[in-house]
Amino acid sequence: MKHPVRRLKRGGVSYVKWGYIFIIPFFAAYLFFTLVPQLMTIYNSLFENYRDGLNQVGPNFVGLKNYKTLFSPDNSGSIGFLKYFGNTMILWILGAVPQILVALLLAVFFTSYRLRIKAQPFFKTVIYLPNLIMASAFSMLFFTLFSNVGPINQLIVQMGWADVKIDFFASTITVRGLIALMNFLMWFGNTTILLMAGIMGIDQSLFESATIDGAGPLQVFFKVTLPLLMPILIYVVITALIGGLQMFDVPQILTNGIGMPDRTSTTMVMYLNNYLSTSKNFGMAGAVSVVLFLVSAGLSVFVYGTLTKRSRED
């Protein structure tokens, strides 16, 4: 009874097909939601296709005209693409340089066996917190805090630090500074944690032997920690750069999409968004996307290189 007549299933013992079955959903979703749209984007970039008031213009095939427009001076005399690419880079550098330096410093502090920092979980929790906060809400918060009637200006006047209110949103320096500050706050905790893991991945005995060999803390940092941390540091910098190219939520909400003053805080993706949502200029939006894609793809090759090099070394 325990063994009823068996029906032997000749299913085979090859499991190859299951590998394909399990990855199908991923590739189907990728194909439909990313690859096809990507190709459509490239296709679009070759067409004139926008709304002019109530009239729809195009789509008409125009070859590379959209790219040409992208790289030629507009009526204010500046080359649109270069201006917004420049803005994006300036905003990114202002935030990323302090972000990486501070993160490097904190990572060394946290991993130092001499300093033995207490309450590490608390500090890490606090500095990582802004990373999870909704960027648009964080940005809205900064807008209300730093607006003309906001508490920061109230504080400045009440404490007598300045005679008149500072209009943070009137000057390029303060707007860019605020965006950089927010980016810094949102990302330095994350970077610290990544670099810490990198330092802890270095064989501890190397630090010990360097110390015994007579190296001071600074020498240990520059001669041992930094060179060995390089691959991770490069990974962190490039992923941060790719993230920086996508900068959108913070400046968009802070400046209400206009990149004030005088579009000096308009980023590439804000520029793309303006074509997409305001003027419905799919041709130009496509051209901006393709250029953005090429830049990110180039950078991704670097990341892929560092990642695969690491896994080969493992």
């Binding site: 749209p37 990507q38 984007t41 790719i242 793309l272 996307s289 393709v290 953005l292």
Partner: peptide, 23 residues
């Protein structure tokens, strides 16, 4: 397949937004 996924890992979603919205 693996290389493919790794390669597209860093491509930001914004760059296909035009086609995505149209589709």
């Amino acid at each position: 397949v693996f290389t493919c996924i790794m390669a597209v890992m860093m491509i930001p979603p914004q760059v296909s937004a035009v086609g995505f919205v149209q589709l």
